[in-house]
Amino acid sequence: MRFPRRRRDPVEVNLTPLIDVVFLLLIFFMVSTTFETRQALELELPESASGQPMEAAPVTLVVTAAGEYRLGERVHTAGTLGDALAAEAEQAREHGLVVEADGRAAHADVVRVLDRAAGLEIRHVRIATEAVATPQAETP
């Protein structure tokens, strides 16, 4: 006796759920990754032997060697520094202001920042430095 064979459907691998999971992982990692905002700005911070490590403050003002001021992503001159700092004054009063001055920056540029901060009643001003590099002991 001859039995009829059942016709089998071809086996297919459904890739749709796999693609969905890959896109969800991609979105998760894109959202949860922190991005460095100042990658192209090269500063030579002065060294300090007695500096204390601190958490990053939300208001950071950078003084470059060329005498420019950077607050966030915007570049300011001495004339526009006061208005830009006034816009961030409330947050700076609450959390503090960090001044990242290049070691080659003019002293007058740093004093200008400190003067404007005092005029806006920002009392917690910290100056960013690098830790002093200790020489490595040579092992024989």
Rank of each mutant, 00 (worst) to 15 (best):
F35I: 10
S48M: 06
D109S: 13
L41Y: 03
E121H: 09
D20K: 05
A65M: 05
R112Q: 11
Q91L: 14
E138F: 12
V110W: 02
R2W: 05
T77Y: 08
T33N: 13
V62F: 07
D109K: 05
D109T: 01
I127H: 07
R93S: 03
G79L: 14
E42F: 13
T33I: 07
V125N: 07
L81I: 01
A106N: 05
M1A: 12
P140D: 09
V111N: 09
V125I: 15
T64K: 10
A105S: 13
E68I: 03
R126H: 09
P46G: 00
L45S: 02
F28P: 02
G79S: 14
H107R: 14
D9N: 08
G96P: 06
R74S: 14
V99T: 02
E73M: 13
R112H: 08
D115I: 03
D9T: 04
V31K: 08
G72L: 07
V11N: 08
H95D: 07
G96T: 03
A56R: 10
P53A: 13
L41Q: 08
A117M: 07
R5A: 15
R123F: 10
Q91G: 06
E121A: 14
A133M: 10
V125T: 07
E100D: 10
P53I: 00
D83I: 04
A92P: 01
L18T: 01
T34L: 11
A65D: 05
V99R: 02
P46H: 00
F28A: 15
Q91K: 13
E36I: 02
G96H: 04
G119E: 06
A40G: 12
P10K: 13
G79M: 10
R93H: 06
H107Y: 10
A105H: 02
V99P: 01
A49H: 02
A128H: 05
A133L: 12
F28G: 14
I19C: 12
V31H: 09
T129V: 15
A84S: 11
F3A: 10
I19W: 10
A56D: 09
A66Q: 09
P46N: 05
Y69G: 00
A105F: 01
A108L: 08
R93F: 04
P17G: 09
S50D: 11
T37C: 13
E121R: 05
A117N: 03
R74E: 14
D115C: 03
L120T: 01
G119H: 04
V98Q: 09
A66R: 00
V98G: 08
A105G: 07
D115P: 05
H95C: 06
I27M: 15
D20C: 14
